[in-house]
Write a protein that binds this DNA or RNA. Structure first.
Lengths: 248, 248
DNA sequence: ATGCATTTGTTCGTATGTATG
DNA sequence: GCATACATACGAACAAATGCA
């Protein structure tokens, strides 16, 4: 056993965290702190091994961890790069916000911007299959991944069909759990309509994006298992941070 | 029977074209000539009935025809409006350009902008599942509906897998027919990835769109019936003329 | 909040022209 | 010529949605 090996083993014994994990955490903090920005190349595995005083295998294990978390991208023969900050929004029949974020190994969170009952305008009524003026509940929500805003969504629910949805949303602060509370245990994405436009000033501010970048605008209709429309959603995503992916 | 009734009946007898169809054709020509532009309101049914000297039912039959053709939009209590120039691009497993356009009762056409063999860069190689530098054939095409540009697409084909694709594209000037010629009778959309960005000057010029409007950028992968990748496409669509719709 | 005018949507009934056998 | 079926066209009345004062 070499002297370094022995020293590293003692370190592991001391705080119960493996070396590769501590190296991964160190690199993660450095990347998130912004010392390296999107697309930047990390030092080579050899350089990192020398810096941390460990074997190259240990560094590789740490980098693999970061790669799985989506924080870096490893390219054979070229090096490791800080991942572009893109989230792929995979559209399927069962699309849920927090599952989407967690699949990218990020921490979902959110902020409720508005919650109230109002009368449907033409567009919302058409989406929900109601007449204009019908009572609907609006739930406006800013979605975050690791604290960065990535979606700004207005969810409309038919108040008559979903009794108690307002109170459920107030209590749960989340769509899926609130729907469950009013008896919709499951729901499916019926259609998704995508277009793009420039953000308003407040949209750009909320989504922390440049006003010169377009946003993806997405109209969704969700139905319960019987096929009744239970939600009309109008979501906005910042480009190029978010891409929408369909795999039929 | 009123005098008008008798006169209209005689007109129908004379040239064998029903009244409502002649009225629909007249209105269609007036709209397409540009006398009315997108979003403009047509005269009321009553006014049109007076103008053509027919019953309101007859006008309604003509308007229904135009509405089905997607030329106008009828709204109860408000009137009839010249349809906004939006094309819904319905994404499914079998998405073909000319079928898409024809489903909207428009006339598809196109212009080949570029056709040549080159070496795949990283992005194209990743899409096609090849190594960078592999020979690929690029087919760049501007798609038109009723003479208006609505898509700007770069299609990349693996030269080694599809022998003769360059010549087939040169002869056919269309993707589906060229693929058929090299033995790919059918192909399926495997994935679709959407984002948005601002157009370059030349993209805006080709698509006849304002540079202040974003374009939808779409990466597609098409496979043959065995699942082998046979095309990687990079299409750009002008907003708000085009929307992308997914219905799983 | 209410009533009113405007406009489209729907449903009766009636008469005529076309096509078929 | 006649019977039948169907689409076209007209007339009248009422329902429903919209916009406005």
């Amino acid at each position: 056993m070499t002297p370094e090996n022995a020293a590293n083993a003692r370190r592991l014994a001391r705080d119960g965290v493996t070396l590769w994990r501590r190296i991964a955490e160190t690199l993660r903090r450095e990347i998130l702190a912004g010392g390296l920005s999107a697309g930047d190349r990390l030092p080579t595995e050899g350089e990192l091994a020398a810096r941390f005083g460990v074997n190259r295998h240990t560094v590789r294990r740490a980098l693999e961890e970061l790669s799985l978390a989506g924080l870096i991208r490893i390219e054979q023969g070229r090096g490791s790069f800080v991942a572009e900050d893109v989230l792929e929004y995979l559209v399927g029949p069962r699309t849920r916000f927090s599952e989407w974020i967690r699949r990218h190994n990020r921490e979902p969170s959110g902020r409720v911007l508005d919650l109230r009952e109002l009368e449907a305008d033409r567009r919302v009524a058409a989406g929900l299959g109601l007449r204009t003026g019908a009572k609907v509940v609006l739930f406006e929500h800013l979605g975050l991944a690791d604290g960065r805003p990535i979606s700004l969504a207005s969810h409309y629910f038919p108040a008559a069909r979903l009794r108690g949805i307002l109170e459920a949303l107030r209590a749960e602060q989340a769509v899926t759990r609130a729907l469950d509370r009013v008896g919709v245990a499951d729901y499916l994405r019926q259609s998704t309509r995508v277009t793009a436009r420039m953000p308003t000033a407040s949209e750009a501010a909320l989504l922390e994006m440049l006003r010169s970048r377009p946003l993806l605008s997405c109209e969704n209709v969700n139905v319960d298992r019987e096929g009744t429309i239970i939600e009309f959603g109008l979501a906005r995503y910042p480009t190029p941070r978010v891409q929408i992916v369909f795999e039929p």
